[in-house]
C-alpha cells in the first residue's frame, strides 16, 4: 500500500468523476426518445363535404335546425365538427350574419364570417367542447322548442354541453353564452359553390381546437380531398 499518494489518488478520482459526468451529460439528450414524432399537417387543406358513400353533400341536403346532427372531421381525423343549417322557430333557414366574437379567456376577438349556402344559413363548429373536451352526444344543438337546462335557465337554439353545462350561441359564431367554458367553439370556415351547391371546408377560425396544441397537429390527416359527413340522431330530441 506504501506508494499510494493521496493527491494522485484524488486526481485519478476526479478524472473518473469528470468522465462519469461527461457520460451522464452526453446521454441526457437521449430522453428525447420519449417524444413521439408529431403527426398532422402543415397547412389547412380544402376538403369537400361528402356523404358516407363519397357523393358530394349539397347545401340543400343539410338538415335544418339539427333534426339530424351532421358531423364531419376537419382538418384532422380526430377533430369532429357539427355542420348546422340554422333556422327560425318555424324551421325556415335564416341568414347568419358575420359578427365579432370575443374569447372571454383572453379578451381577444376574432371575426366570424357568417353562414354560407343559398340562405347564408349554414355554419360549422368544432364538436369538441372547449371546456373539458366533451363531444357528441354530450355536446349537441338544441333545436327551437327543445330547452337545454343552462346556468341561465332553460334555453333553446343553443349548443349545450351536458357534461359541465357550457352553452354556446351558434347564431353568433358559437360565442360563449354560459360557462364554465371560457372559449367559444372554433369555427370551420365553409365555402359554398353556387353553381353546384357543393360545400367545402377551407380553414379554422377562432380558438385552438380542444386537446390540440394547434389545429394542424396531434392527429392523423384525412386522406384524399374530401371528408365524409355522418348523419347522427340528435340526442337533444330524445
Amino acid at each position: 500500500m506504501g506508494d499510494v499518494n493521496q493527491s494522485r489518488r484524488t486526481f485519478l478520482k476526479s478524472l473518473a468523476i469528470i468522465a462519469g459526468a461527461s457520460m451522464v451529460v452526453g446521454l441526457l439528450r437521449g430522453l428525447e426518445v420519449l417524444v413521439p414524432p408529431s403527426v398532422g399537417l402543415t397547412s389547412f387543406p380544402t376538403l369537400q363535404l361528402v356523404d358516407e358513400n363519397g357523393n358530394p353533400i349539397k347545401a340543400s341536403d343539410v338538415p335544418v335546425n339539427g333534426q339530424k346532427m351532421a358531423m364531419f372531421n376537419y382538418p384532422l381525423s380526430n377533430e369532429p365538427n357539427y355542420l348546422l343549417n340554422l333556422g327560425n322557430d318555424s324551421n325556415q333557414p335564416v341568414e347568419i350574419p358575420a359578427t365579432t366574437v370575443t374569447i372571454p379567456a383572453t379578451g381577444k376577438t376574432y371575426e366570424f364570417p357568417g353562414g354560407v349556402g343559398p340562405n347564408k344559413s349554414i355554419v360549422a363548429y368544432s364538436a369538441i367542447c372547449e371546456h373539458l373536451g366533451c363531444t357528441y352526444p354530450e355536446l349537441t344543438f338544441y333545436p327551437p322548442g327543445v330547452k337545454a337546462l343552462t346556468f341561465n335557465g332553460p334555453m333553446d337554439k343553443v349548443i349545450h354541453c351536458s357534461c359541465h353545462g357550457s352553452t354556446y350561441d351558434p347564431y353568433r359564431g358559437a360565442a360563449v353564452v354560459t360557462g364554465p367554458t371560457t372559449k367559444p367553439l372554433p369555427t370551420v370556415q365553409l365555402k359554398w359553390d353556387p353553381s353546384t351547391d357543393y360545400l367545402y371546408a377551407v380553414t379554422m377560425i377562432g380558438p385552438t381546437i380542444y386537446g390540440h396544441t394547434d389545429d394542424l397537429s396531434g392527429g392523423s390527416p384525412i386522406s384524399g380531398n374530401s371528408t365524409s359527413v355522418a348523419m347522427l340522431s340528435n340526442p337533444a330530441l330524445g
Partner: peptide, 17 residues
C-alpha cells in the same frame, strides 16, 4: 465510447487504489 471511457477511468483508479 463515453461509457467505455468512464469504465476505463474507474479501472485505472482501481489499479492505483
Amino acid at each position: 465510447s463515453l461509457m467505455l471511457l468512464f469504465a476505463a477511468d474507474v479501472f485505472i483508479y482501481f489499479n492505483y487504489e
